[in-house]
Computed example of a mutant assay.
Amino acid sequence: MEQLFTLLLLLVCFNFVLKQTFVSVRAMLFTMVAVCSFTFAMWPYAIEQSSTQIAAWLATPTLMRDLAVVLSLDVLVQAAFCMRLAHNGARPAHKGRWQRYVDVFLRCYPGLFIFPAAFSLLTASIFAFPGVDFTLVAAGVSGTLLMLLIAASFGLRRMLIDRDTRLEMLFLSNVLVALIGIIVTVNGTTAAASIDNVDWRASLLVLSIAAGGSIVGYLLRRLKIKYDHHKLTRK
């Protein structure tokens, strides 16, 4: 399980670096400096951890379910960014104020799980260099991490010049993160016990909500098509 968790953290770091290839250099540097500053600031908490305590955390179902929620939010936001960027590239149009705000948020959102990944790297480095001053280790990890992130980001920009290729890779990598996250965070347990009978009332309620939402969405789309057609005919 620890090997899978390490693989998950590596994929999260890769997604973070790949996501920074879609923003400006100034925004990329600001985000990476913020992550590395967080890494250095967390050394007083990292020295209080132990390998047995971390293993106990990974075996705690409630904590892993909380991590699953954070990871799911990360994956959803990154997937929304990929679909939004692909949609904007395929159908360029005038954007409203709120649409521009959403695009800026999706583009600049670095991902929440990058901070636990950086904290895990700091903790592992402190374990690997016993007897060395903690602030020196934290400074070394932060500086090295900053240089590696910047070099990896510029390297990906040069290796994958095509934006669509990077976007597709980011989407597929997030899908892989979601699949591995399910395996790691569930850890052989389920959030609820299974039952033998079926709650037909709840099932019918869910189906009714789904059917009602589909009908409302269809009607709204028809109204939008008629409104757009009316605007074109007036022009």
Rank of each mutant, 00 (worst) to 15 (best):
Q3K: 12
A202D: 10
A118P: 00
T190E: 12
V186H: 13
L58T: 02
R234E: 15
A55N: 10
Y227C: 07
F154W: 13
A79R: 03
R84F: 10
F5K: 11
L18S: 01
F127A: 12
R166P: 06
I47A: 12
S125H: 06
G217R: 14
A211V: 13
M1P: 11
V12C: 03
V184F: 07
M64D: 01
I114R: 03
F119R: 07
A193T: 10
L8A: 04
G188D: 05
M1F: 12
N197E: 15
R26I: 11
F40I: 06
C13G: 09
T52N: 10
L4Y: 08
I47C: 09
M32D: 15
P61I: 05
A90F: 09
Y109A: 03
L146M: 14
A210V: 13
F16S: 01
S37R: 02
Y218W: 12
N187S: 10
L136W: 07
L58N: 04
I47S: 13
L223Y: 11
A41M: 14
T60Q: 09
D74P: 10
F113V: 08
A193S: 14
S194L: 14
I183V: 13
L9M: 15
R158Y: 06
A41C: 06
V25K: 10
L58F: 07
A151M: 09
V184I: 07
E2H: 05
C13L: 15
T31V: 08
T233V: 14
A117N: 04
Y101T: 09
A34N: 06
V141M: 15
A152I: 00
R107L: 14
V25M: 06
A117Q: 02
I114L: 08
V141Y: 10
W98Y: 04
L179V: 13
F30R: 12
N88T: 05
N187C: 00
T62Q: 12
A46P: 11
S208R: 08
R84V: 03
A86D: 07
A27Q: 11
L121G: 06
K235Q: 13
L145T: 15
A86I: 05
W57M: 15
M64T: 02
G188N: 04
I161V: 13
S214C: 09
W200T: 09
F119A: 13
F127M: 11
W57R: 06
T21S: 10
L205Y: 01
K95D: 12
N15V: 05
G96L: 04
C108Q: 12
